[in-house]
Every structure is written in structure tokens, then in C-alpha cells.
Amino acid sequence: MDLMNDNLWRVKVGLAEMLKGGVIMDVTTAEQAKIAEDAGACAVMALERVPSDIRKEGGVARMAAPRVIREIMEVVSIPVMAKVRIGHFAEAQVLEALEVDYIDESEVLTPADEEHHVWKHGFKVPFVCGARNLGEALRRIAEGAAMIRTKGEAGSGNIVEAVRHMRAIISQMKKLTTLGQEELVHEAKELGAPLDLVAWVAKHGKLPVPNFSAGGVATPADAALVMQLGAEAVFVGSGIFKSSDPAQRARAVVKATTHYKDAKIVLEASEELGEAMKGIDVRQLEEKDLLQTRGW
């Protein structure tokens, strides 16, 4: 891929590399951002409402108010990300003008375009996008996403969808490594993804950008689970600030993510925590209530 020689692309992916092994936390205020940073978050995600509140309150979920994002940028020294609606390139332009460090084109907000995602190569600020499978991940990368995260089911406090999506991406990548050239052409058609990216994954056995997990992480063990399944970092949305003990839980999830293979430390991190967020059985949700089906 020619992209690998493009310096802008390299610094976009480079920042994602710096976040590996860390925890990126959803925050809605400067105060929450400070708590996240003090707990060891490697970045924060600014948004108007956390996913579980969006789910509960309904209405249109949009990019957070610039004033709030700026307050967050002023109070923490770690990278600040913010979400835009799928396809809402003007919100993205606003966030670029605000100089956020990363933009999440996110299914958690109400989509602005049901056919097109943002053409992310047109921006200097890097983007992260959600994906449920390899085809979706590669389509987003083709548009310029420099980081992929699983969609999971945001605001559910239920890890099942994040697990499903991570397993799907990893097993589809494994399969590609076993195929011959002519089979890759067919697979590109099946995945609905560009052949050059499909061929890259077949050769390297991984995505050309970091692959993080999101959508349902609520406990230290959830973080350890997705990391062991192949996630390179963890996004926590409602899981921190919808729990009974945000600071302590944030610290515990950071600890479990660093030491994800060391059960004794994950145990230590899990002890003395209060109640996790309540959570939803995703099977009880109707199709129209799912956030993961937004975008393609």
C-alpha cells in the first residue's frame, strides 16, 4: 500500500500506536476527564452524553458542545478525542478546527448520512471508526480511518457484542492468511473491501492500523477478556462513570488492561470494587434499538 509511505498517514497511525495497551475513557465534563487522567487513562473521548444515557433518553445525539471539549482539552495533558455523527463531515471540520487529537466517527451518535461515511483521507486529524467484521474495518480504513475499534453494543454494559466483533475480525484475518491470490480476489468481493487491503491483511495477518475494542466493557475482567482475544487497547464508555465508583473502577480497568495476561493482578484489580453499571441483555433489544447496525 502506498499509504505506508505517506507521512501524514504515518503520524495518524503513529498516535494510535502510542495508545496501545491503554484505556480510552468516555467523559462528558472536564471534571470527569481529570478523574480519568488521574486514574491512568491514555486518552479521553469527549461526548455529549454517555451511550447508556443516549439509549435511555433518546433524541438526536450529536457532537459534544465545543465549549465542553475545549474545557476538557485545557484540563488534561493526554490526547482528547471527540465523536462525530457518521457522515457528518462538517462536525468533523469543526473538531479539526478545534484541534482535537482524534475523531471518532461513531455509531453511538445519530447518523447524519445513511449511505456515506466521512472521507477521512481529506482530514489532517486522524479518525477512528467502529467495525463489526473485517469487511467493515477495511472499508473504513480505505476511507482513511487510522484506528479501528469493534462496535460492540455501546451503553449496554454487556461484553457479548464486542467479543463477537473481535472474534469475527480476528478469525476472518486468519482465514485470509491461508488463501491464494485468486481466492483473495473472491474474498475481497465477499467482504466488500478493496483488494489491496485484503491482500495486505493476507500477507501480514493483522490490520494495517491498530485494532482496539469498544462497546460493552464494564469490568476489569471484561478488559482482560478482549485484550486476550486480540484487542490492542480498550475503550470504556458508560462503564466507568455509570458505575458506583468511577475513580476506583477506572484505575482497576487500567490495571487489568496492562496486566491482561496476569490473572492474579486482574483479580487484585477486581477486588473491592463497588457495583458495575447495570447492563442490558442485548437479546432483549429490538433491532431498531441497536447502535451497532448504524453505518455499514
Binding site: M18, K20, G22, E37, D38, S77, I78, K255
Partner: peptide
Amino acid sequence: PGGESTTHIKVMREE
């Protein structure tokens, strides 16, 4: 390595 120094300090101090 590169990463977030605040995170590194926090985790290293505690452990």
C-alpha cells in the same frame, strides 16, 4: 517507549 507518560507514572508508582 512512547505512550502517555502520565499513565506510565501512575501504573509504575502503584506497582
